[in-house]
Design a protein around this nucleic acid. Structure first.
Lengths: 335, 335
DNA sequence: CTGAAAGCGCTTACAG
DNA sequence: CTGAAAGCGCTTACAG
C-alpha cells in the first residue's frame, strides 16, 4: 500500500497519494472533497474509497492558502468568568453560523496569555474577521491588529473599527437618579481598571453615577474598589456590613452584587429595605436573586457585532467607521 | 506607492513585493522575518523599512504549509462558566508557553457550537495538538479527531489517547464515608449528563457516594437533578428547605453548593450544624464561603495534560496510551 | 466529466 | 551573507 519512499518518517498522506491510489487526477480528488456536482458517481466512490483506505485528511492550511479564506472568526474577550461572555458569544454565533462561519475564542485573562497572543498573533489573528470585547483595540492590541482584516469592537469605542456598545455612562446616570432619593448612605463597589488588558466599562458606569448624584446635590459616601472575583467581594461585603446596617450600594456589575447580598442576608439585614442594592448587566443570576439592576442587551449586542463583521467581510460596509450605541434600562426588583 | 496591476481589487502585499521594493531576494526577506543571524544589519534595515512602508504582514498559513507546524494547541471544553476552566487553562498555558506554544479555546457549550466545530473541524483541529476536557473523545468527537494529531484527554478516559483525571468515584466515596455518620437525612444535588456533549464526572461522583453509603448501611433519601446553572439550583434549594430544616447535602460540584448555602442561610438555618453541605472541586468560592469539599488539583491537572501533549508532539512519548489518575481529598470547612 | 498545470505565499537547502 | 529555485498541499480556470 504505497511504497514508503526511503525514510521511515511518517509522511502525511496528501491529495496526491489519493489521486494516485484512485487513478485519477488531483483535481478530481479536490472536486469530490468539495462536493462539486461535476463528478460521476462512479469516480466519486472510487475517490471516497481511496480516501478511506489511505486515511487521508485534508490539510486546511493548504486550502486556505489557495482560496484565501478560513471561514473562521476570532473572538477576543478579557476573561471568561460569569455568564456574560457565554451570552455574548451565543449572540455572535447565532449570526456567524448562519453565514457559514465558526468562531474561535481567545480569552486574555492574564499576562501570560497576552504574551502568547503576541507571539502567535499572526495565525490567531489571520482569520477572516475579529471581534474584540473590551480589550482596547486602540491601545494594547493596536500593533497586533491588522488594519486590513475586518474587525469590530464590543464594549468600547475605536477610531479604526466598527463598534457596538451599551451606553455605560448613561446606565450609571439612571442608577444615580434612582439612588438620589434614598435617605441612606451611598456606597459603590466596583472594579478599577488596573492593567491595560481590562475593561473600562466599570469606570464609565461609576462616572455616570457620580455625575447624576452630584446634580441632585448628593454624593457617594465611599467607593470600594475590588478585583473582579468573589473572594474579594465577600471580604468587602463583610467589612461594609460590620459597620453599616443601612445603606444603598451600587455594584457596577451583578457579579459583584451577589456576594454583597449574600453577606447582607447572612448577617440578618433586610435587603430591599435597610439595604438597597443595584447591580448592572441583568445577568441570569440577577433575576434569580431578585437583584435590581441595569439591563443591557448582551445577546443582542453579540448579534449586532457579528452582523457588522459579516458586512465588513463581504465588503458591503461603508468606508466610515460605524458605531452602534444601545440604551440600557433600569429593572427594579426586590433589592 | 507600487503600481496597482490592472484591477483595482486590493491585493494582499506579499513577501515578493517587499523583496522587490527592498531590492533583495524573497529568501532574504524571509530571513529577516525569522530573525536569522545571517543577514547584514544594513540589508536587514532595508528590508524592515520596506515592510513598514508597504504595510506588509506575513501570511501564517503559507508559513504553516511550508514548515508544517503552527505552534498552536486547541483546547476543547464543554462550557466556560465558573472558575474551573480558567484554573485548568492556566495550568495548561503555564507549560505550553514554556515550550513556545499558544492555546486556542473552543467551548462546546451548546449544539450550535458543536455543529460549527464539525463544519470547521479541519482548521480548528489541525493545530499541533489537542487537549479535550470532558467532552467524550471516544464518543461525539470520535469522527472529528485525527489519530495522527497528538491529543490528550482531561477528565475522561480514552482508548486512543493519553489522559489525566481525578478519581471521581473515589471522591464520591470519601464524601459517603463522611456523611454516613451524620444522623440526618441525606440529599444529593447533582447534574445528570443529559446530552452527549456533557461531562460524566458528576455521575461518577454520585456512584461512589452511593456505593460508600450502601456499604455503611445507609442510603440517599433523595436525589435532585438540576441543569448546571444557578437559576435551577436556587429553585431546588428553596424546595428543599421549605420542607427540611435538617439534612446533609452532597452537591457534586461547589458551583451547585453556593446557592444551596445561600438559601439555607437566608431562611435562617444554621449551616454547619442543622444543615451540612459538602461540595466537590475546591473552587476559590468554596474557600470563601467555607464550604466543605473534595479538593481536586485542577491547575496541576492542566499542567500534566500539557506536558503529556508536548511529549507526544515531540515524539518522545511511548506508543502505549498513558493514563494519570490523581487522588482527590476531603477538605473539611465550616459547612 | 476530468487531467495537467499554474498559482496561493511562504521556507530552506543549495550554490555562490 | 544572499539569490534562485524547489517544495509545502491544496484549488481552479483552461482545455479537452
Amino acid at each position: 500500500m504505497g511504497t514508503v519512499k526511503g525514510q521511515n518518517k511518517k509522511r502525511r498522506v496528501t491529495i496526491k497519494d489519493v489521486a494516485l491510489y484512485a487513478n485519477v487526477g488531483v483535481g478530481t480528488v479536490s472536486r469530490v472533497l468539495n462536493n462539486s456536482p461535476h463528478v460521476t458517481l462512479e469516480t466519486k466512490q472510487k475517490v471516497l474509497a481511496a480516501i478511506r483506505e489511505l486515511g487521508y485528511t485534508p490539510n486546511p492550511y493548504a486550502r486556505y492558502l489557495s482560496v484565501g479564506t478560513s471561514n473562521l472568526v476570532t473572538v477576543i474577550i478579557p476573561e471568561m468568568k460569569g455568564d456574560f461572555y457565554q451570552m455574548l458569544l451565543s449572540g455572535i454565533d447565532e449570526v456567524l453560523v448562519k453565514h457559514g462561519y465558526s468562531s474561535i475564542l481567545y480569552p486574555l485573562y492574564n499576562n501570560r496569555r497576552y504574551e502568547a497572543l503576541k507571539k502567535s498573533s499572526e495565525l490567531l489573528l489571520s482569520t477572516d474577521g475579529i471581534i474584540v470585547d473590551a480589550v482596547s483595540v486602540d491601545g494594547v492590541l493596536k500593533d497586533l491588529l491588522n488594519h486590513n482584516t475586518p474587525t469590530v469592537c464590543v464594549e468600547q469605542e475605536s477610531e479604526m473599527f466598527d463598534s457596538v456598545m451599551v451606553d455605560n455612562y448613561y446606565g450609571g446616570v439612571i442608577v444615580g437618579d434612582y439612588f438620589a432619593d434614598l435617605e441612606m448612605e451611598i456606597f459603590v463597589v466596583t472594579h478599577r481598571k488596573s492593567h491595560e488588558l481590562e475593561s473600562t466599562v466599570f469606570d464609565e458606569r461609576l462616572e455616570g453615577f457620580q455625575a447624576s448624584l452630584e446634580k441632585k446635590g448628593r454624593n457617594i459616601d465611599k467607593i470600594y474598589y475590588v478585583p473582579l472575583d468573589w473572594e474579594s467581594a465577600f471580604e468587602v461585603a463583610r467589612r461594609i456590613f460590620s459597620r453599616h446596617k443601612r445603606c444603598a450600594i451600587f455594584t457596577t456589575t451583578d457579579y459583584l452584587a451577589v456576594p454583597i447580598i449574600e453577606v447582607a442576608r447572612t448577617v440578618g439585614l433586610n435587603v430591599g429595605k435597610d439595604v438597597r442594592v443595584c447591580g448592572f448587566d441583568d445577568l441570569p443570576i440577577a433575576q434569580v436573586l431578585g437583584i435590581t439592576t441595569i439591563k443591557q442587551p448582551i445577546h443582542e449586542m453579540g448579534k449586532i457585532a457579528a452582523e457588522m463583521l459579516i458586512k465588513r467581510i463581504k465588503g458591503k460596509a461603508k468606508d466610515k467607521v460605524a458605531k452602534v450605541i444601545l440604551k440600557p434600562e433600569l429593572v427594579i426588583r426586590e433589592t
